[in-house]
């Protein structure tokens, strides 16, 4: 499934979608950035509740397909702007992390 196909569906909504054609290949969940950096695989959708600007570097360098902010976590405007500059896809959902993962598991 492509990232853009999640947006507007199954309870996910895009905050930024500069690279919507990116294919989602698996899911990784975590909030400790170095842990995520070391364990997430290229192409994974990364579900987190962290929202500081450093998530963008982690997503970019670990090459995840998108960040999914769970539980209605919001981003500051400068983080959104930087995400667009760095071509990072970010989606949001009101689901908790477990429900988001279960939902993703059934659709990707």
């Amino acid at each position: 499934m492509k990232v853009k196909d999640l947006s507007g569906n199954y309870g996910f909504e895009a905050i930024t979608l500069p690279d919507g054609d990116r294919e989602i290949d698996g899911v990784y969940i975590g909030d400790l950035l170095s842990w995520v950096m070391g364990r997430a695989k290229s192409g994974n959708a990364w579900i987190t509740i962290m929202s500081n600007v450093n998530i963008l570097a982690v997503a970019s360098l670990a090459d995840t397909s998108c960040i999914i902010l769970a539980e209605d976590v919001t981003l500051e405007d400068d983080v959104i702007k930087t995400a667009i500059d760095k071509e990072i896809n970010i989606l949001k959902t009101s689901m908790d992390i477990y429900s988001a993962a279960v939902t993703l598991s059934s659709v990707i």
């Binding site: 909030d31 950035l33 170095s34 842990w35 070391g38």
Partner: peptide
Amino acid sequence: LGFGAGMGLPNMKRY
């Protein structure tokens, strides 16, 4: 901020 998990140097070695 999500850092300080003690994974920095091990990640550098791993990769």
